[in-house]
Design a protein around this nucleic acid. Structure first.
Lengths: 192, 192
DNA sequence: GTCTATAGTTTGATAGAC
DNA sequence: GTCTATCAAACTATAGAC
């Protein structure tokens, strides 16, 4: 039993993920995380030396989540299916987005307003997303426009998430999701 | 001299606007605002009973800024010019957006993660923006699609702002700005 | 490894002199 | 109306028993 027999570290990260998404990094206290995960406050510091280290672990956890999603989508037969699957995955989480926005987008936005280096990890998350989308457009034959299309795709989703959250209206995400899917379809027929 | 002979209230709001945009509401302390505006900390409470009241004043100030922008754009000759002018106004503030994102968007995102009623004022700001854009699309003859187009327009800008800030890349905003302007042009030729 | 108690800061807010 | 001094609460982080 020299290393993590009880999974407390994972529980702390899981609780921090959710609390940070719903309340933001700044308003989430270590006492909140300790309570939510059933770990005494003092014990948190055995797993994470500082609050920032816990936040960093949450960013890494979001990166893992992204990796898992991309791995799943990669099983779909065509790039069109995969891009649509990406949007549909977001659409499946409307309620969460209405309540607290995109976990990745709001995390980036919040961390960018801080001095410490935490924003870079969050930016890497966004870059990873965009790069994967670009690779799908390349597979569709849009070699030259792949990078630009990828930014438009992710940007479209992020903007929809901001508005969906700000106006607390799930229809916004659904509407934009369909708009983006129609666009993907139109790019499929007019391949490069 | 019974009411505001020195403009301190305005200076406090102005300093708070900038600090909240660059650092976020949570990390901006009243001491920060007091310092930046040259007002002693204790005196801040003469003008604003609580920190939230100051934040509310900042939201109102952003609403006024939006009103001023819309009033200016309303002088342009056509709805196409006005919509393009709106995007170009954003493009003119790229540096600010690279550094800290859209003042309105990030404010909405941050306030939505709080319990107090401050998010509603920020949402009203976003709604005002969308409504004005929708009215322009209506003037272009797109009666039926105005609401949907307006959401796509504002969503496109907000998403671009999120990515521009997260990746610290001004080209993203510029590229998306042009994409949106081309779209406006295409809607002008195919009017309803 | 786990947990309680508490130290040390920061910060929102107030008291009260001028 | 203005400003200094300070309180009280919240929170990160540590000390040290078990």
């Amino acid at each position: 039993m020299t290393k993590e027999p009880s999974g407390k570290r994972d529980r702390l990260i899981l609780a921090a993920r959710e609390l940070i998404h719903s309340q933001g990094v700044e308003r989430t206290t270590l006492a909140d995380v300790a309570d939510a995960s059933g770990v005494p406050l003092g014990n948190v510091y055995y797993y994470f030396k500082t609050k920032n280290e816990l936040v960093e672990a949450v960013v890494n956890s979001r990166m893992q989540e992204m990796t898992d999603l991309l791995d799943t989508l990669d099983f779909l037969p065509s790039p069109v299916d995969r891009l649509k699957g990406m949007i549909q995955a977001a659409e499946a989480k409307v309620d969460e987005i209405v309540e607290s926005g995109c976990p990745m987008g709001t995390l980036c936005t919040e961390l960018e307003k801080r001095d410490d280096g935490l924003a870079e990890g969050a930016a890497a998350l966004m870059r990873r997303h965009i790069d994967w989308v670009a690779s799908q457009f390349r597979l569709m034959g849009h070699e030259d426009d792949a990078a630009e299309f990828a930014v438009a795709f992710v940007s479209g989703y992020q903007g929809a998430a901001v508005l969906t959250n700000a106006l607390r209206d799930p229809q916004i995400l659904i509407q934009e999701s369909r708009r983006i899917q129609r666009w993907i379809d139109s790019l499929a027929t007019s391949a490069g």
